[in-house]
Design a protein around this nucleic acid. Structure first.
Lengths: 224, 224
DNA sequence: GTCTATATTGGGATAGAC
DNA sequence: GTCTATCCCAATATAGAC
């Protein structure tokens, strides 16, 4: 009896348009019900108890399914984690896009983006879950590629906010997107480790000031 | 036969002076030779093969010692990892302090700090090792506290560079230190995941520009 | 497709000789 | 202080019945 292998293996998207399309499809909606229950259970365990607690037995019990069904649907543990990453990545993308695209282009949306960062940092769950997977990601080409694509998507979203996404961004704008994402991650780490000694309010305020400073220099936006 | 428990348990340093003193002592120099070999072996395995490969058998083999000796010297695996974190933390601190303190105060040192960041990001080994431990850290109070102290030390070092360390920093300066460290970590993550799509050169250049912009605003430094 | 039962491995811990 | 040998357990994977 052959174990089923993960089906879709989409190539890394080459253009921003392709990346946007990739973000649109839900990787878990097409799964059989049992596989979906298993995946949901895995996500709950990862976020509640961490990667160390993510054993096949724990997943089976949490999902109220059998251990063997994991092997059937995902091949092995690696396959389960790949699917889990896909689901986390999709969710994370959906969240960011939803948060920014409900606002009009330009000044307001940028302010929303930067102020929204603080909420994202305080809601560390999703990010922490990805950090827990990081050790796996650095050893598995397919997992690392998926997370790398997630980050590329994040950067594209920031670019969309800044210039509505047309054309090739300047080197400065691309760098600004890189830094914006880096700030979110970096602050999340320090805040998760030690919330008492990390003043997110002041930090995001200063970061906004720095952004305003350089963006007006670049002639991009004036959010005063 | 009682297992030996880790000896030093220094309280969390309360002042910047205490933090500096803490950074001065080497936590592994006082260890017996066998314990030291075990710890060095653990560090090699962590950096080479990741946390998943850090089993007691692997450590014993790499160190050419017996598995039981780990239990004797460190109590259990958790104790070994705590000691490992101490050693990584000490090393990381030494690196940053050495890099900044060889330069004169003020403008030059700040530029060195910011340009040195790029090297730190490209040399991801130490940071990746800490990230691999992150899942443990979030579940173990003593490990998390040690890493939190490391970050507090980093931030203090940045403050030293900015104002030579006297007095209580303003909220803005404290935030700047926070952001500086966050940038290093955040860029490291994106660079580790996908070096081809991350232009460190341009990103650090833009970050320097943003720093210059806001610091001159604050009347702190002019590194033009 | 799903389950029970089991094979097999490898990990962490420790007793007891030296 | 250090080693050998062993114990116990948890985990993954899979065979085979239904």
């Amino acid at each position: 009896m052959e174990a089923q292998v993960p089906k879709r293996r989409p190539g890394r998207p080459r253009t921003r348009q392709q990346a946007l399309e990739l973000r649109a499809q839900d990787p878990i909606e097409s799964l059989p019900p049992t596989a979906r229950r298993l995946l949901d259970a895995a996500r709950r365990i990862l976020e509640r108890d961490g990667i160390a607690a993510l054993s096949l037995s724990a997943v089976a019990e949490e999902a109220d399914e059998s251990k063997a069904s994991i092997g059937y649907h995902f091949g092995n543990k690696e396959g389960l984690i790949v699917a889990l990453v896909d689901s986390l990545v999709h969710e994370a993308n959906r969240g960011l896009v939803a948060q920014t695209h409900q606002y009009p282009l330009g000044d307001t949306r940028l302010r929303v983006l930067m102020e929204g960062e603080r909420e994202i940092i305080e809601d560390t769950q999703g990010f922490i879950a990805l950090l827990e997977i990081f050790p796996y990601a650095m050893r598995s080409e397919s997992i690392r590629g998926r997370i790398a694509d997630l980050y590329a998507g994040y950067r594209d979203t920031v670019l969309d906010v800044l210039d509505a996404g047309q054309g090739t961004p300047t080197r400065e704008l691309a760098s600004f997107a890189l830094l914006t994402i880096a700030i979110v991650d970096g602050l999340s780490i320090q805040y998760a480790l030690d919330p008492d000694r990390v003043d997110l309010e002041a930090a995001t305020h200063l970061w906004q000031r720095m952004g305003r400073c350089v963006l007006s220099d670049l002639g991009m936006v004036d959010i005063g």
